[in-house]
């Protein structure tokens, strides 16, 4: 070897100390922290998460336990938000229901992300036939209306639990993320640093994980966040019409289904306004965070 480190590294060179640079991701996060709305949204979301995690400590009532003597009771000291049509405590259902709604939204997002990253990477990196196949599959799934497809699958399966609901949501909505990741890969593929990595002999897997994905992290993160919001709404919508998580398991969506009765809608707003607000606030905050991330990762896009 001509390049001998020993001869070239003189005693004057300080090997240990080097100026730390700012990575583009760090810069984006710094920019994100300046966005007050987004940071406030993060705090509100964290608060919601803490509340649903600490649910057993915040209420001693069991959200699934029916009590026939308490049917449709107005709020009282013991039952802050009254009781529902089966006599279950609304407050307990609200905070326990948040668990299910958030878990469904989050796991569906993670599931979609996995499918999207794998298929999008393959499609965008290799191109050609495999790309055509994946893209036609995307078209096929996109063609089917989401809600009708969900209803059909739920109707066929008869029983729905969280895992099934998450799978249904993920399996019907992976194409949009797959397309976004493929698109990002296609633009990156023409960049010279990808060619440079190939010229060095970097393996395909390392190119995808070290060169493509870190540079696509912005769009991936933004879309995953926004997607989580739509999944929470999807869960609520399905539960509202009775095709989501079945009773007695509480979710914000099936709490709202109580309001299908005109009597409750008129007389007991305390039964349906809180879960409705919870959905609204959560989704709004997630969207603000998503927008904040978008502005942080792509500062050119935020000045409309």
């Amino acid at each position: 070897m001509e390049l001998n480190p020993q001869t070239n590294t003189g005693p004057g060179i300080d090997i240990k100390n080097a100026e730390k640079g700012m990575s583009p991701t760090k810069i984006a996060m710094k920019r994100f922290m300046k966005n007050k709305l987004a940071v406030a949204s993060v705090f509100i979301l964290l608060l919601i998460v803490v509340v649903v995690i600490l649910a057993p400590f915040l209420t001693e009532h069991n959200p699934t336990k029916t009590n026939l003597t308490l049917i449709e009771r107005p709020p009282s000291e013991d039952h802050l938000l009254g009781n529902d049509s089966s006599g279950r405590d609304n407050f307990a259902r609200l905070i326990y229901g948040g668990r299910i709604s958030l878990i469904v939204g989050f796991s569906a997002m993670v599931f979609t992300l996995v499918i999207g990253v794998v298929l999008g990477s393959i499609s965008g990196y290799y191109g050609g036939k495999i790309d055509s196949i994946i893209m036609r599959a995307c078209d096929l799934v996109l063609m089917l209306p989401f809600l009708v497809l969900c209803l059909t699958i739920v109707a066929i399966l008869e029983e729905v639990n969280v895992t099934i609901l998450v799978s249904i949501i993920a399996l019907t909505s992976w194409p949009s993320l797959t397309r976004i990741i493929r698109g990002t890969f296609l633009t990156l593929r023409e960049q010279e640093f990808i060619l440079g990595a190939k010229a060095i002999g970097v393996s395909d897997l390392r190119i995808i994980f070290k060169h493509f994905i870190p540079n696509a992290i912005g769009p991936i993160l933004v879309n995953a966040t926004l997607m989580m919001a739509t999944y929470i709404i999807a869960e609520s919508a399905l539960s509202f019409i009775g095709f989501g998580i079945p009773q007695p398991t509480p979710t914000w969506g099936n709490m709202l289904s109580e309001a299908q009765s005109l009597r409750i809608l008129r007389n007991s707003p305390e039964a349906w306004i809180p879960p409705g607000l919870a959905i609204l606030i959560t989704v709004l905050c997630i969207n603000f965070v998503g927008d904040g991330l978008r502005d942080a990762f792509d500062p050119k896009s935020n000045r409309r």
Partner: peptide, 21 residues
């Protein structure tokens, strides 16, 4: 790491800027 530092010197860059982007 040593090799990277020696290469940086070869091409006339300061090795202590090696953690920059």
């Amino acid at each position: 790491k040593e090799k990277a530092i020696s290469l940086l010197e070869k091409v006339g860059l300061r090795p202590d800027s090696r953690l920059k982007y």
